[in-house]
Design a protein around this nucleic acid. Sequence first.
DNA 1: ATTCTCTTTTG
DNA 2: AAAAGAGAA
Length: 681
Amino acid sequence: MSGGGCSIVWFRRDLRVEDNPALAAGVRAGAVVAVYIWAPEEEGHYYPGRVSRWWLKQSLAYLDSSLRSLGTCLITKRSTDSVSSLLEVVKSTGATQLFFNHLYDPLSLVRDHRAKQVLTAHGVAVRSFNADLLYEPWDVNDAEGRPFTTFAAFWERCLSMPYDPEAPLLPPKRIISGDVSRCPSDTLIFEDESEKGSNALLARAWSPGWSNADRALTTFINGPLIEYSKNRRKADSATTSFLSPHLHFGEVSVRKVFHLVRIKQVLWANEGNKAGEESVNLFLKSIGLREYSRYLSFNHPYSHEKPLLGHLKFFPWVVNEGYFKAWRQGRTGYPLVDAGMRELWATGWLHDRIRVVVSSFFVKVLQLPWRWGMKYFWDTLLDADLESDALGWQYISGTLPDGREFDRIDNPQFEGYKFDPDGEYVRRWLPELARLPTEWIHHPWDAPESVLQAAGIELGSNYPLPTVGINAAKARLEQALSEMWQLEAASRAAIENGTEEGLGDSTESAPIAFPQDIHMEENPEPVRNNPPNTTRRYEDQMVPSMTSSLLRVEEEETSSDLRNLAEDSRAEVPRNVNINQEPRQDTLNQGIVHTVRTNNTLPQFNVAMVVGNAEDSTAESSSSSRRERDGGVVPVWSPPSSSYSEQFIGEENGIGASSSYLQRHPQSHQIMNWRRLSQTG
DNA sequence: ATTCTCTTTTG
DNA sequence: AAAAGAGAA
């Protein structure tokens, strides 16, 4: 086919052979070298947690064997710098092209852009594709062409785009292997000795790998999907799709999920199956939230460390590592929260509802800094995903325009009876409460002494009393808010007087650091799903360490480099390049629709486009390639041009904030509420 | 029809 | 927590 050397297909979080545009492009172009580069130091703080690494290991092995059955193998490289490793692979294989699929987290955006620059400079043709989303972030804009800032509007737009998401690609029938005789694989180490025991148990519950993902998808769509809406509020039932870890690593493509679900949707709509339709809409909405997390991360690349709305800048967070520890250990004294936290630690999994419960408790009752909680989720979740993690915690913390109101405190006792009405979930994960009657199971502190005695519970020793009472939390929240207002007023006055510039900024832009030396007792035997009659005392509950033991010192440099880079640059400011589009000829089924879109002006916001290697593009378009529109485009960051805070937070005083995010949401509910509150308080 | 109450939803 | 919706009186 295309002359010259082979192409590298760079796998990242697209560990599948089906509907993988980068792989398809490589196969079309001739011989393929499939590469995975393990460079966790590049992730800085966000070195993947134990269970996430376990999954990755399995998934890579699976991908390797799939590739082998197709005629090639997966080359694995251990690296501290992905781009240099790519160059080495280029040198040792004589590759002339590089294909990969887009990622949207801030680190990847920077790294992938560099990869493109460096390899292009070395004469390698680089092309990248959309494999992770229904629509590229820069394709979804409001009527004025600006990115959406609320989920509902975003998702509505996605569902009414003038062209459908791409139909999934079939897996290649066979792959011609490039010459890898001079490109040996490194052995990748994903777990240390202390982790092996715990990891062994994960395999009982989960099967990573793309065809397992496929099976999970089919099972879900043909089974629980129709009941999704009815069952979604049960903390405990196995009615979710369980697709999130598969989706995180790209073992199954969202586009495939979307298409299969849509088929059901049409079917049920025809049958007039109301419940089915509602279920589909709800499930698609959760897919939409995943899309939105990428969208947000792309448009606001600091959303994993900075609040999108800056109005909490002066909030006096409770920096109390004791609270943090109690939360992690599942010893807050609120049964639903504790059950959730123990399930999380034991299994790496939590139902979405319970994620909301425990994180809301964290932010509103304990009033701990949300990034701690976010980091802990990152460290412990099997489906840990930076973009979703950030979206979730920002939503809970009320720093999104459409997030939860900040002064809303959810009461875990009431939520307990809502999501776990019979207390079964609590009994499973808190064996010490197993004998408590349902009447008291979600608020043992109210139970009569005789009841507690009969259940073998001694509050304060057996099971803790509430760490913070709900009423105390409410009081403290009010007080903290008025404190915040005072601080803000002071800061505003200072700025108006011109005496002070960066007071506020320094507060918020030096975010409260992660606790450094929280090393907990690591228990070699992981806590399993304890049968209710086991009498395990809470002291036995093990807790993971916050800082990964695998982090090395040299990494500090890497990560701080990256952080500096991140701090100085900001996303966007498009210099829009019109992209080379001839109307696509879709070999499958959507050719006509696409002409519409190609005539539309291309995105002018948020992303600078780089036209792909010209020679390559033409070669592609002359063949009947279906994904050529993605092929030439790599999202690119423009060089640093202004400080972060102007762009993303916007100074509340309005100075020079014409384009500020906050100003686009002047009616932000939080602020209204606080004004009211501070007058009374 | 109108108000009141209970339920559901809220990213 | 608050608002919107559904259903009852």
